[in-house]
């Protein structure tokens, strides 16, 4: 979706403000939100892409104004409601009022912690050879899906070159819709800064994205 989350190249947000001696969490509730998000995702088989899509669907003014973990909290809460794991009456009372709904992978217990403290693998067997090879010229497609995609707007329609082939990975666009088994070849595609930003762009700049095969056309 063409949402505010897709912010590469937007102007007007001001300087980056690094914080010296930044703590891992700025309040205890942030840590609880992170842990609840990881555990509930694992317990109910929510892919990373489903969770990202939930955050992208937060109202744009909220998305731009909220802190990181506020976004995580409200997106997770919406997923819990949408999947029938909690309801509004429970949120209002602050307690469980109904029996638990079944979780796809069962409750998340202490013994399950190691499996969420390591990033998973997204490699899948390929059912066809890679369409492109290193050095091939490609153009990012001008597509505007209403649902989740990982093709950022600032490269759409622009020409680049295949720099690396990263393997055949789970396709986020379908994974966000609940199908985590579709996979596509993944490429590092490099774009010249002036191809993206015009003749006034930084001449020393190149930018790469990680692009799934269906995001690209041959040139």
């Amino acid at each position: 979706m063409d949402g505010v989350h897709d912010m590469g190249g937007m102007d007007g947000f001001g300087p980056v403000k690094p914080e010296r001696g930044e703590p891992v969490f700025h309040a205890p509730w942030e840590a609880r939100v992170l842990a609840m998000t990881r555990t509930m995702g694992a317990a109910n088989g929510w892919s990373i892409d489903m969770q990202r899509f939930a955050r992208e669907q937060l109202p744009p003014p909220f998305y731009l104004g909220a802190s990181y973990y506020e976004k995580w909290f409200f997106a997770m809460r919406q997923m819990l409601l949408d999947h029938g794991l909690i309801d509004g009456a429970e949120l209002a009372s602050g307690h469980a009022l109904h029996p638990a709904a079944p979780l796809k992978r069962g409750p998340f217990m202490l013994a399950d912690v190691p499996r969420v403290m390591r990033r998973g693998t997204f490699d899948r067997p390929a059912d066809a050879p890679a369409r492109f090879k290193v050095g091939d010229h490609v153009r990012a497609r001008n597509i505007h899906p209403q649902t989740h995609t990982r093709l950022p707007r600032y490269v759409r329609g622009h020409a680049g070159v295949i720099e690396r082939i990263q393997g055949c990975h789970v396709f986020p666009d379908t994974s966000a819709q609940g199908d985590s088994e579709q996979a596509q070849w993944l490429y590092t595609v490099i774009f010249d800064g002036r191809e993206l930003w015009g003749p006034e762009g930084d001449a020393t700049l190149t930018v790469s994205i990680e692009a799934f095969e269906s995001y690209l056309d041959p040139v």
Partner: peptide, 18 residues
């Protein structure tokens, strides 16, 4: 956040120790 954690743990979806 505390209210949501209470709901999730009371339902047995997640163990607070995790």
């Amino acid at each position: 956040v505390r209210a949501l954690e209470t709901i999730l743990t009371e339902k047995g979806y997640v163990e607070a120790a995790a």
